[in-house]
Amino acid sequence: MIAIDIVGDEDLELLLEEVASVYGYDFTDYSKASIKRRINRICLIDKHKSFTELRYKILNDQSYLSRFIEEVTVNVTEMFRDPTFYKTLKEKIIPQLGVNSFIKVWIAGCSTGEEVYSISILLHEAKLAHKAIIYATDINPTVLETAKKGIYPISQMKLYTENYQNSNGTEDFSTYYSANYDHVKFKEYLRKNVIFSTHNLVSDRSFNEFQLVICRNVLIYFDKILQDKVFNLFDGSLESLGYLALGSKETIRFSDLNLTYKQINKEKIWKKTR
């Protein structure tokens, strides 16, 4: 799907400014190339023939806003994506968390929840779930509804089971869900210690202190300046000696945190050293 852009650079800036001032969703510091592609993609899919048409629709049809947000904020995700990351969590990080009397984890940008159930499974297997709480947040309320239900297509289970096994998971993965025709539902106990809530990393503040903050494949959509702002938000939300986990191609290398955080193994996990 390639076409000459309907929304150009200046249109994009104007639109993002307006969406921010009218609706309070501020995408102005998102990575320009990505967001421009997403917005032009919406034009193709929803058949807006001009920028004016798209702009009119967004600014005058509030119900279209959620569609806009859904498309702009990519919500593709997987369970146990990058098995070696989960292996390191399981073997190096989670046991460390166990020394606390109460474990608090924040999963920011959790999308439809696949990551949340993966972490919850690790906590259960480590027998730490009873004293753990997971805050799972996202900007988009629609994906959180799916996350709360924990219902996913059965067609995905082959991949997720493989990922789970590759992360050194030793249980029978199918014990974690019940299957029903073409869907599976993850077991109730896996979401018992989870609080799902909207939280916008651009505009909302720190709301607690955690020993582990996981934010994967969200910062790639932000420019460096916004990334830096969010790193500071995470820093302010981490206890000393807490851990920050990012996506497999994301880094704190360009930020001040680089000075006070130490990388664990070669994974994208850093320990706060103060």
């Binding site: 990575s31 320009k32 190339a33 990505s34 592609r37 990519v74 790639i220 959509y221 420019d223 191609k249």
Partner: peptide, 14 residues
Amino acid sequence: LIEKDRTVSLDYSE
């Protein structure tokens, strides 16, 4: 994707 300042933006979309 490539930004105007010639940095790279990765994207995990469809």
